[in-house]
């Protein structure tokens, strides 16, 4: 059984010249533990391999349950030079959140608490 990464996390991405940052933020502390263990630098580099990043570096921001990935030289030139539609890598976080992951046994502890209005 698999679920999408978006079941346990949310995120946002953006550009820095020809590089992109992809922040993935766990819904819960249990989800953050899962991210730390499974969403490795190598796994993210492999996932984005078709875009040809020169390298991928992972940073942690445990205070907001987040991993932040820098994807170097991934934007085909960046905002000015790139011939892609998404010149700024704004879709990369949503693309990563669509990654299929093996369903964690404690998934219920990682899903987003219901919001009450």
């Amino acid at each position: 059984m698999t679920v999408r990464l978006s079941e346990i996390a949310h995120g946002r991405s953006g550009d820095k010249g020809n590089h992109a940052n992809v922040a993935i933020i766990a819904n819960t502390p249990q989800g953050f533990l899962w991210l730390k263990q499974h969403l490795t630098q190598a796994a993210v580099a492999r996932y984005f391999e078709p875009l040809g990043p020169a390298r991928v570096i992972r940073f942690e921001a445990a205070n907001v349950l987040a991993l932040n990935f820098m994807l170097y030289d991934v934007l085909a030139g960046g905002a000015s030079l790139s011939l892609r539609s998404d010149v700024q890598g704004k879709t990369l976080a949503l693309a990563l959140l669509q990654m299929e992951i093996k369903t964690p046994s404690n998934l219920a502890e990682m899903t987003r608490p219901k919001v009450t209005h």
């Binding site: 946002r12 953006g14 590089h19 933020i25 940073f59 907001v64 932040n68």
Partner: peptide, 11 residues
């Protein structure tokens, strides 16, 4: 949280 890390390298 999403905006805190927007366009950030080493947080």
């Amino acid at each position: 949280s999403e905006q805190l890390l927007y366009e950030v390298g080493d947080p």
